[in-house]
């Protein structure tokens, strides 16, 4: 009886494990999650405008547990008072992000202060409530110029808006980041400050560019209350090819192993193999004695 119990309990455990390898620890119910809806706009370097909304479900108890909502249709509008102009729609990807890009020549409805009012809207499903988020931005123009002034490589930024009369109005102040294009992401090289619409910054001369020495420089205003995200970029042949002269000092990756390693391993191995040899020699001596005994008994 006991044996049968043991047999079956082990069997059940094994089968359970084989079939449960992929099962999840906790049941995920939508009731345990709160919906988060983010909306932002980025004026890109080519003057097009990207609208991006993100829909994420976050666990009410575990804030780290976030699940992006896939395939949700997000509509983007330009609004002015009661008027709503559909700019486009897009479905969320596996990160819960839906994006549309509006061309440079896209015309927008603006209020009397020159603000473009944008809305992202998700109409909801049986399980998820409708979501809506609005933002208001001014159309900022960011001009980036890379010039050598008296042999000094200089980055010049000009930030302005165009008022209702069509005249340029430099912005009063804003934070700005100057970055260069790296292998995996943009590498910030200066976190500056625009005053009166201008920034002048001396470019470091030791930044490596691509194979041809070209450098992509970005000027980025991030999450500004008035202008949102704005970006400008420009190329210049300012890159420096850095020959790596330093040899890696990590000895584990050099051609030859460190001396101590050879010494320790040799001592260990010689010790062990010498013992084997000693054992085998003793076996031969046992064999010799055995042969002598056999010869003796034969002779007798």
């Amino acid at each position: 009886m006991k044996t049968t119990f043991y047999k079956y309990s082990v069997l059940v455990l094994i089968i359970g494990l084989l079939f449960n390898i992929r099962s999840s620890a906790q049941e995920t119910s939508i009731d345990n999650y709160r919906m988060l809806f983010y909306f932002k706009t980025v004026k890109q370097a080519d003057n097009s405008r990207m609208l991006e909304a993100q829909l994420i479900a976050r666990n009410k108890k575990d804030r780290k547990d976030k699940v992006p909502v896939l395939d949700a249709e997000i509509q983007f509008f330009n609004i002015l008072n009661d008027e709503e102009v559909l700019l486009g729609k897009s479905k969320t990807n596996k990160e819960g992000i839906a994006q549309i890009t509006l061309a440079e020549n896209q015309s927008y409805l603006t209020d009397e202060e020159g603000n473009i009012n944008l809305k992202a809207y998700f109409k909801g499903t049986d399980a998820i409530d409708e979501q809506e988020e609005t933002i208001s931005v001014k159309d900022l123009h960011l001009e980036l110029d890379l010039k050598e002034i008296d042999s000094v490589k200089t980055v010049l930024v000009n930030a302005f808006v165009i008022d209702s009369l069509g005249t340029k109005q430099n912005i009063e102040e804003s934070d700005i980041i100057i970055s260069v294009n790296g292998m995996l992401s943009k590498m910030p090289i200066e976190e500056g400050y625009i005053e009166d619409g201008k920034l002048e910054f001396e470019m470091p001369t030791d930044i490596p560019g691509d194979v041809d020495g070209n450098l992509t420089v970005y000027a980025i205003i991030e999450d500004h209350d008035e202008f949102g995200n704005v970006m400008a970029k420009k190329y210049a042949n300012w890159g420096v090819f850095n020959q790596q002269d330093e040899v890696e000092s990590n000895s584990l990756w050099t051609e030859a192993a460190p001396i101590w390693m050879y010494i320790v391993l040799t001592i260990l191995l010689v010790g062990v193999w010498a013992n084997y040899a000693y054992t085998i020699l003793n076996l031969f001596s046992i064999k010799k004695e055995g042969k002598a005994l056999e010869m003796n008994s034969k002779n007798q």
């Binding site: 013992n275 000693y278 003793n282 001596s285 046992i286 064999k287 004695e289 055995g290 005994l293 056999e294």
Partner: peptide
Amino acid sequence: LAIGYYDTPTQREKLHKITRTMSAM
């Protein structure tokens, strides 16, 4: 495989000695 082992005191002693060394090794 017995390599002429006849359990004589000297053979026994030798075998015990090397087995003990090998066990430590």
